[in-house]
């Protein structure tokens, strides 16, 4: 059995009448990269900040490394690194001084220079923090979180506001952390980020987890059907057995759990009859489809 680093049961959080979290269950095992994926306002940051010990909860059981984060124990803070969405550091200290200052709060810190190298700020080592670009400051955030050599890391929307290349760099850092065996809990509203980085994804919408699993199975056939799209001359119609439907743009669509059979039938029929299938394509459901389906259904249910 894997070691549970995070265990959450029935987590609720209300702000007055507003139920921000409506009973969340989740767990993260040691060494796992876990992504909480959801639109803005879904409850990602609230969940993360409860796990980090910044926020109280209304109900439910929460354990992080065996501790209740609400108790504010120093021992827990020694073992986790936190990258928040918006935190600052003193603008007048240098990168090296900043990382050294934070490293000094821990019993067994990592070497400051090593951490700075890891996040790719070696050239900016002696630059004052106020001279760093936004992306460099974000990397410094990660360096500070790593300074104490934590067992697990919280990354709250680590790439929001990044340009594509900065995003790639940040992803590489997370991959490197995973390779070091760190447990990572990250929140994101980017589907591709969750798909690329996470071992397991929980999709959250309106304070509830609506799907959970490895990105591959989330986007898998048991969740949504594959779609076959094609065009045909107006006078023709596909075999009735395929139950094809006409889309608004004039294309035909066949939905199937497993597209192999219908595709064979369709192409066989086309060859026999000599009717062309223009723009034939098979669309496997992406995480994005699953995500929009899940979170969209939530919107519709309101």
């Amino acid at each position: 059995m894997d070691e549970r680093v995070i265990e959450v049961r029935g987590l609720r959080r209300s702000y007055g009448d507003l139920e921000a979290l409506k009973g969340i269950d989740l767990h993260v095992d040691r060494g796992e990269v876990f992504a909480m994926l959801g639109p803005n306002g879904a409850g990602k940051t609230t969940t993360a900040e409860i796990l980090e010990g910044y926020r109280s909860r209304t109900a439910g059981d929460v354990r992080v490394l065996g501790f209740d984060p609400a108790a504010g124990e120093r021992e827990l803070r020694r073992r986790v690194g936190i990258v928040l969405q918006s935190t600052g550091v003193d603008p007048f200290l240098t990168v090296l001084e900043t990382v050294q200052m934070y490293a000094g709060y821990y019993d067994r810190p990592r070497d400051a220079d090593e951490v700075i190298d890891l996040v790719g700020l070696a050239e900016k080592r002696n630059a004052r923090v106020r001279r760093l670009s936004g992306g460099q400051q974000r990397r410094l955030d990660v360096a500070i979180a790593l300074a104490g050599d934590p067992e697990m890391l919280f990354l709250d929307e680590p790439t929001t506001g990044f340009d594509p290349s900065a995003r790639r760099n940040a992803w590489q850092i997370v991959k490197d952390l995973a390779a070091l065996g760190k447990t990572v809990f990250l929140t994101t509203h980017f589907m591709d980020e969750a798909q690329y980085l996470a071992d397991r994804v929980a999709v959250i919408a309106r304070g509830e987890i609506v799907a959970e699993g490895p990105p591959g199975t989330l986007a898998g056939r048991e969740q949504m059907q594959a779609r076959i799209h094609f065009r045909m001359p107006d006078e023709a119609a596909p075999p009735e057995a395929l139950a094809a439907t006409r889309l608004e743009d004039g294309r035909w669509e066949v939905r199937a759990d497993d597209p192999t059979g219908p595709l064979h039938e369709l192409t066989g029929w086309a060859l026999e009859t000599g009717i062309g299938l223009d723009g034939l394509e098979v669309l496997l459901p992406t995480l994005e489809d699953v995500y929009l389906d899940l979170t969209g259904a939530q919107v519709g249910a309101e």
């Binding site: 910044y54 803070r77 709060y105 104490g148």
Partner: peptide, 16 residues
Amino acid sequence: QRDAGILKRIRGTPLP
């Protein structure tokens, strides 16, 4: 420092 998020970050470390 509070508004710049410096205090919040400090709060997440073991520094009393």
